[in-house]
Amino acid sequence: MLATIEFLNIVLPVLYLFTFVVYAYDFFAEKNLLTNSKRIFLFITLFVHIFYLLLRTMEYDHTPITNKFEIFSLLAFSICFSYFILELLTDIRGTGLFIIFFSVVFQTVSTFFIEHDYAVPDVLRNRLLGLHVISALLGYSGITISAVYGVLFLILYKNLKASKFGLIFNRLPSLEILEKLSFYSLVIGFALLSVAITIGVIWLPSAFPNFSYTDPKIIGTAIVWFVYGTGIVSKLFANWYGKKVIIFSLSGFVFAILSLIFTSTLANTFHSFY
């Protein structure tokens, strides 16, 4: 089984890169030759990836969240999987390349640095932690996708304002759709982050004797959650539109990333396992 895991570990970035190239070709060539088939490549990649994650779970007897590079692989999967679901639901196929790019990066880094023989602390074998991390990752995937659509919205917005009718104008969906995609992925991301926070609040105090609600990571996450929550409520109840919503969403994403970097590297937190 280990040989298969090692083999799939090498195959996965190749598959992601290939899928990315197919999506990029379809976007730039403007010939719609691969419009239908590219989704099949994405499905195959995701299928192989989920098989790889299951093999790892069985082989090592824990969910693949015990080191940064397992997390990266899971993040690559969750970003692409979230996009795949979004593409299936909306049938908007022209934006995949901008999202699959993140999966290519995360999976490539994971493939190069992941280890196949390592000791795992008992706390990381806990199933609730698995749920906590997976929901958090899916949540962050949601807000990442939301940010990508936000950036695409701003690019198309600027192109339209400047009367530039090139590739971006021809290939991207309308501003209204980009705004909706950004908002829907944000709402899904927010919901999953809420699940992750809820599980964390229930489980962490019992798992860690030095647990504290003033921990920088908990405060940072709570602020991110509050920022996104405010944005969603404003959009729904104060009728915010277009650029305003997108800028709010992008600001939330930047804050979330900075908060993650700060709490993972600079701050002293009990909430650090790797």
């Binding site: 339209l160 104008f169 991207l172 969906p173 309308s174 501003l175 209204e176 759709i177």
Partner: peptide
């Protein structure tokens, strides 16, 4: 065509 790039429905 430009209008369609701004509004979806």
């Amino acid at each position: 065509q430009v209008v369609e790039k701004i509004f979806a429905n």
